[in-house]
Amino acid sequence: MNPKLEALFDEPERAYLQTDELNALSQFVSSLPERITLYQRLRNEEVTLMQSVADALQQQFSREPEEKLKRSLQNAILMVRYAAMAMLTDDADIVTKRLETWLPEIITAYETRDIDMALYKLIKTQFAGRFSPTQMALLAPGINAAERLITESGSPAESEEEITSETLVSLF
């Protein structure tokens, strides 16, 4: 759950919750049915949604090796799952917290940044055609958090490139 909401439950010994704190809680709770509906759609339509993204991606990067596209797609599917969870719990930080030390370096090492950036554009346009603006607004914080992780990944250093292809055994 959103850390601000979660923090409401931290200190019952401090005082009773105030009206504005309870309002924030009600607001989240009243948005839950819509969040759950959207989550269910993302879950049920995962393959269809991501297949349309995959087809568009393959058209756009027809010269890239399929392995590379598959790797990016797998990461994108993972990210959409995280974004869906972020949407359900109203906690976009979950994406950053779990993945910020992990994903950018993986992307840098495999040099898939350009593909990944294009992928997020495709996800946004494809999803916008299928979901309502309200639903997109709910999903956006998570997707944007994931996109930021990719934008922040650097260009690969020579050594990182080697890490993906070589095993450490061969170092000595």
């Binding site: 596209l69 598959k70 797609l73 599917i77 993972l78 995280y82 779990r98």
Partner: peptide
């Protein structure tokens, strides 16, 4: 063509196993 269903054969995608809040 890439098949998304094939990418999701076992329906789980490994991520950051050691993420502190779950580990």
């Amino acid at each position: 063509m890439i098949s998304v269903a094939d990418l999701l054969v076992d329906n789980r995608l490994p991520s950051n196993y050691f993420a502190s809040d779950v580990y």
